[in-house]
Design a protein around this nucleic acid. Structure first.
Length: 407
DNA sequence: TCTGGGGTCCTGATGCTT
DNA sequence: TCTGAAGCATCAGGACCC
């Protein structure tokens, strides 16, 4: 860290992660075009190996089209458990460099190296060492690494030279380096926003940097201000070591569209079971349930319901989801059914949260929770009144309820 | 061409509380 | 007791990311 480098932030991004793992594990796939994705014709490509990309195949492309463009490609169904293993190797390797590692997904992460330059050298040698460590930890897989003084610029830098690239952008060169990049490199500007920016006459990040922020705000709202800052390389966000999940969902696109009530309920049951299992595994409770349906015409509909008491029970999730079906106007057919648990909290802290408040909405929730406990364990399990509310007996019974739910 | 699954964040409408 | 406004929570939808 110096006057020139207020922070040193690296972004590591694995190259064609899933496809590279498949090629690593199955040597006969090396050197050949590989598509990782579902065998179903309704799916999309998750990752295309670098051998497949010259054919015009890329992530998120419909499988049917990818196979037409590159018929000789080998299609491999994804093995997420395996990818998680390799991801853990990657994150452990990064943790050797800094306590501040922020995973963004299975295959990429930020590393705050600000405190370590005296150990690992300047920005370029830090990047080179990261790449070498990743290669060694993952059995030879390559990553592209970007190093700069902010998260945003580090991320754009890592994507600049792929695969196996290393791009360092010193702080005093950030503005000039960003300026010629296309607006598609603006974090948060997807197809819709890019089109609007193009209409406004912006083609490069430099164009946005030179624009009047008021004009950006008028056209795009709050995100306009953020674009203006990012385009000038201003990004003060810290590398956050840990984040807690806010929702957890399970959704499936079906082999064929469905419209019978029984079939939809069967799919909801499967999804609710999946969500419940993961809630219990991660010791989380859900404060609400959301049902998602996608029509044959790709319209996405959602209905949600907050729960009287937090739960991790598949039964409660399913019951709530099934009841929500009545709130949809559309009758189908649907191509996707999903269940999402939101307002998550950890199972350990949940009871304290409930006991600790006395205002309107929450105290009604607490009342409902206590009713549930009383129904299940008998009226003696709950003592009401302001004096009784802090008693540990209530806490114990609520926890027991959830443990029993685990089966 | 025919469009996944896992998420996050934002916006606007609406209804409840204060 | 009535009324209005402000502030907040909830809900539905949409854009985006990997």
């Amino acid at each position: 860290v110096s006057a020139v480098w207020p922070r040193i932030i690296a972004h590591a991004d694995m190259d064609a992660f899933y496809a590279s793992i498949e090629q690593h594990d199955a040597p006969e796939l090396r050197g050949r075009p590989v598509l990782v994705g579902p065998r179903s014709l309704r799916g999309v490509v998750l990752t295309a190996s670098y051998e497949a990309r010259p054919f015009g195949v890329g992530s998120a492309m419909p499988m049917a089209r990818a196979r037409r463009l590159c018929p000789q490609a080998v299609v491999v169904p994804p093995r997420f458990e395996r990818y998680k293993q390799v991801s853990a190797q990657l994150m452990r390797a990064l943790a050797d460099f800094s306590a501040r590692v922020e995973p963004l997904s299975l295959d990429e992460a930020f590393v705050d190296m600000s405190g370590s330059s005296h150990i690992f050298g300047d920005a370029r040698s830090i990047g080179a060492r990261l790449k070498a460590a990743i290669r060694e930890a993952t059995g030879g897989l390559t990553a592209s690494v970007g190093v700069s003084a902010s998260k945003y610029v580090a991320k754009v830098a890592s994507s600049f030279a792929k695969p196996d690239g290393l791009t360092v952008v010193p702080p005093d060169e950030v503005r000039a380096w960003l300026a010629p990049q296309p607006i598609s490199r603006l974090w948060g500007a997807g197809p819709k926003t890019q089109a609007r920016l193009a209409e406004m006459g912006f083609a490069t990040i430099g164009d946005v940097a030179g624009a009047d922020p008021a004009r950006l705000t008028a056209a795009l709202g709050r995100i306009g201000v953020r674009f203006h800052a990012l385009s000038r390389g201003e990004d003060v966000r810290e590398v956050a070591a840990s984040r807690t999940a806010k929702s957890l969902s399970c959704e499936r696109t079906l082999e064929r569209d469905i419209d019978s009530r029984e079939e939809i309920e069967r799919q909801l049951r499967k999804a609710a079971d999946g969500v419940g299992r993961r809630l219990r595994k991660n010791r989380l409770l859900a404060g609400g349930v959301r049902v998602k349906l996608k029509t044959s015409a790709f319209r996405v509909l959602t209905r949600q319901q907050s729960l009287p008491a937090e739960t991790q029970s598949s039964e409660v999730l399913y019951g709530t989801a099934a009841a929500l079906l009545a709130a949809f106007d559309e009758r189908g057919p649907f191509r996707l059914v999903g269940v999402c648990a939101y307002d998550l909290c950890s199972a350990a802290e949940s009871t304290q949260l409930d006991l600790d408040v006395g205002d309107g909405a929450r105290s009604r929730r607490l009342d409902a929770a206590l009713d549930a406990v009383a129904r299940r364990f008998g009226p003696g399990a709950v003592q009401r009144g302001s004096d009784a509310i802090g008693q540990s007996g209530i806490v114990g019974d609520v926890n027991l309820d959830f443990l029993n739910d685990d089966g």
